[in-house]
């Protein structure tokens, strides 16, 4: 068996910070299963109190868009500047915009 197939599976780690509303990808690590991945993530990525919640996803379960489809996928949005809400005058009385 080649060394690579004896290695523990790779897990992608997502941590929600104390103020955060969503989990953010922070990195990846190896672990034998989900429970150990959560424990390892706790030790590797939250030892400075970075998080309140951890998600782990086995990397092989992530399906990604392909680099070669970047053009058809994303370029058509380039000339649709009206999709940004930047054409409105904000009244003086509105705060926190």
């Amino acid at each position: 068996m080649p060394a690579s197939s004896r290695e523990w599976p790779l897990w992608e780690i997502f941590v929600r910070s104390r103020q955060g509303l969503s989990h953010k990808h922070v990195g990846s690590l190896r672990a034998v299963d989900a429970e150990m991945a959560i424990q390892n993530a706790r030790d590797v990525y939250t030892r400075r109190r970075e998080g309140e919640s951890i998600w782990v996803v086995e990397a092989s379960h992530i399906h990604a868009s392909q680099p070669e489809s970047r053009g058809p996928f994303f370029d058509p949005a380039d000339d649709k500047i009206y999709r940004h809400p930047t054409f409105y005058d904000v009244p003086d009385g509105v705060e926190n915009m």
């Binding site: 523990w8 690590l29 190896r30 672990a31 424990q39 390892n40 030790d43 590797v44 030892r47």
Partner: peptide
């Protein structure tokens, strides 16, 4: 034995 466990034991 692995980096992750090294950190866990040190913690």
């Amino acid at each position: 034995p692995v980096l992750e466990e090294d950190i866990a034991m040190s913690n």
